[in-house]
Design a protein around this nucleic acid. Structure first.
Lengths: 184, 184
DNA sequence: ACCTGAACACCGTTCAAGT
DNA sequence: ACCTGAACACCGTTCAAGT
């Protein structure tokens, strides 16, 4: 069934939300090159041109998906925790999102604009947290963020090899804990 | 002038070398999306189809360029130096190559196959060197490689902002020295 | 307001034909 | 062996027209 069941019966209309949902699904199923405006429209049972009533162009699709997925990095944590723990939570959450959306992440990495947006989301909050526990907060922020991006890149590129991906996850947390332990 | 001067006068032929040179130049000038088989052929004064006598397809172009550029990472260093210094040389050379070829690097990062190839080039030699100076060589290899990839990603994405790129370079070396100092 | 058909200006790649 | 013209199966996007 191409269309969700709970929609008004004969309505052919698509919403921005529906388009973005379908785009993310298509992207992760088939890769960035397969996410074409035409394939996306076909999946929604609509003409390619109708998408342009809801989106500027294809570039907006990726930057919007990037925003949608990666705002989650800063979602509130469960309980109160110290700074070091909060830093860890943000970075692990980021790393997990990369693992959950490898194709989106690879697409973002190749697009400097989308990359900058996603990166800032992590960086800003981290700088704040690090300022409270070290004077070298810029240096440590760069070390932690760069290391996370690099491991994320390896993780995303390993999307087709689950056991390799798992080992990347394990080593990431181990390395992260090692770095955080030295942060003092 | 579209054609190098030193070639046989009326020969229209292109070689694999000429194609790769032109492809790299076009890629860095105009970005990955602009590196089309048709534009590349036009730059060489030849029909698009003639390229297929020298290359399998467009994918081979990128993976071949990746190989060509990033073998340089392992080029022999000037004099004899200790292990720590050799590690530093490899990583800095890698980082510099990223800065010199940002568009190629962004394209490689988005292509898991090309990324794996480039990554192995750095990783293998590093593992060897690290084994000689620490028992936790796998952990440290991941930390160093991931950090370099992450900073490289930021550097490549900043190709349009030279002063930001320079600051990324500075912080990378600072962080790298910090990490190498703690390696023991 | 939203959807459509037709069109424009592109792609990568294949094939059969030329030299 | 290498280059070509023509063609195929695609792209993103625009425009004028329909409801």
């Amino acid at each position: 069934m191409k269309r969700p069941r709970g929609r008004p019966s004969q309505g052919k209309g698509v919403s921005r939300e529906l388009i973005l949902d379908a785009a993310l699904a298509l992207l992760e199923e088939a890769g960035e090159k397969s996410l074409t405006m035409r394939a996306l429209a076909a999946r929604l049972g609509v003409t390619p041109m109708s998408l342009y009533h809801h989106l500027e162009d294809r570039a907006e699709l990726l930057s919007e998906l990037s925003g949608r997925v990666y705002t989650e990095v800063l979602s509130d944590s469960d309980g109160p925790s110290d700074h070091r723990r909060q830093i860890r939570e943000i970075l692990v959450r980021y790393h997990d999102l990369v693992g959950k959306h490898p194709q989106l992440t690879l697409a973002i990495f190749a697009e400097p604009k989308a990359f900058a947006g996603m990166s800032r989301r992590i960086t800003d909050r981290l700088t704040e947290l690090l300022s409270a526990i070290t004077t070298e907060h810029v240096l440590w922020r760069d070390i932690l963020v760069d290391h996370s991006h690099g491991s994320g890149l390896a993780l995303a590129a390993a999307f087709a090899e689950p056991e390799r991906a798992q080992s990347i996850r394990d080593y990431y947390q181990q390395a992260l804990d090692g770095l955080l332990g030295r942060l003092e």
